[in-house]
């Protein structure tokens, strides 16, 4: 499977970070490459992220909220970044950053809860699926069994990575995960009880993941990357630590937000975008230093992008 197929399937990315040849490449499965998903929780305001600064209706509908034309960071004749994303401009100029516009699904659902479920499962808007889109993809094309895990989610919510046959682990900190997993004894017992067999299989998966990660982290390089001390900065630092230790994994997921702001929208949104930009720049630097940047695609997504008209 090609990286491009991945992105086509998701089709939901306002921002994709990577060097161009990564998804220009054809050929077989490249499991040495890694996808990092960044969920912008709560619905990122797309129009104030990538601003249509030539668009008259945009300014008419957002008398208070619009990003002033003169402060936009120009990307094209029509579009520009919110100035809070200024740290990302070098990536844009180096053609390591793509903005994918106009991606959505029919009959958008305005419930945060339901809409993110539609994205996470890549379902139709009137269809409820239980498995994440990555899990369904991997059901057809399994990552190597030598991987520590198919997916790692930082924080609570592995949703796009969750499915019956996907080996996903969630953690806040690798060390905490290793401590907890060390209590789980791998067990070889044959049983005809499917429920028990399932639990034992998951236990063995955990031990497998913990053993491999333990080795990789112990043998990894010293980590002295500078990451901003924000929640998204800390999460991407953990991702960088795992990747530079060569932890074998196919997908990682982090999240940033909440973008579900009801008051003081401009300031809060700008702060969140700036935190995101700074964390992404630090992540890119860490990956370049470790000579891994060409193997990584990072993609942001959100459940929806907010209406054009500001609330009165």
């Amino acid at each position: 499977m090609r990286r491009r197929d991945f992105l086509k399937l998701t089709g939901l990315a306002p921002l994709v970070l990577a060097v161009p040849e990564v998804y220009g490449q054809a050929g077989g499965v490249h499991w040495e490459r890694v996808l990092v998903l960044v969920e912008l929780r709560g619905g990122n305001d797309g129009l104030n992220t990538v601003v249509p600064y030539r668009d008259e209706p945009y300014y008419r509908l957002r008398p208070q909220l619009a990003v002033p034309r003169q402060s936009v960071l120009q990307l094209s004749e029509q579009l520009g970044f919110n100035p809070a994303l200024e740290p990302l401009m070098p990536l844009w100029q180096a053609r390591e950053l793509a903005v994918v516009l106009g991606v959505g699904y029919a009959n958008p659902n305005r419930s945060h809860f339901r809409s993110i479920e539609i994205w996470d499962t890549a379902s139709q808007s009137d269809e409820v699926l239980q498995e994440g889109w990555i899990a369904r993809l991997f059901a057809k094309q399994k990552p190597p069994t030598t991987f520590a895990a198919d997916g790692i989610a930082l924080g609570l919510d592995p949703r796009p990575l969750s499915g019956a046959h996907m080996r996903t682990i969630t953690m806040r900190q690798p060390q905490q995960f290793l401590d907890r997993a060390s209590r789980v004894q791998p067990t070889v017992v044959s049983t005809t009880n499917p429920a028990l067999a399932h639990i034992l299989a998951v236990q063995n998966e955990l031990s497998h993941a913990a053993t491999l990660l333990q080795d990789k982290l112990a043998g990894g390089p010293d980590q002295d990357f500078a990451f901003p001390a924000t929640p998204i900065g800390r999460q991407l630092q953990v991702v960088a630590t795992l990747l530079t230790s060569r932890a074998p994994v196919a997908v990682l997921k982090v999240s940033h937000g909440s973008f579900d702001t009801h008051s003081n929208q401009r300031n809060t949104h700008d702060r969140l975008l700036h935190e995101l930009a700074e964390a992404l720049v630090a992540f890119r630097q860490a990956m370049r230093t470790a000579n891994l940047w060409k193997q990584v695609v990072l993609m942001t997504y959100a459940e929806f992008g907010r209406r054009a008209a500001e609330k009165r």
Partner: peptide, 23 residues
């Protein structure tokens, strides 16, 4: 999680929920 409710059965146990149960 949605109108179908919790799927239950084996879906209760994933690597993360198993660790959370032990915890």
């Amino acid at each position: 999680p949605n109108v179908k409710g919790w799927p239950g059965g084996k879906a209760w146990i994933t690597s993360s929920t198993l660790l959370a149960r032990q915890q």
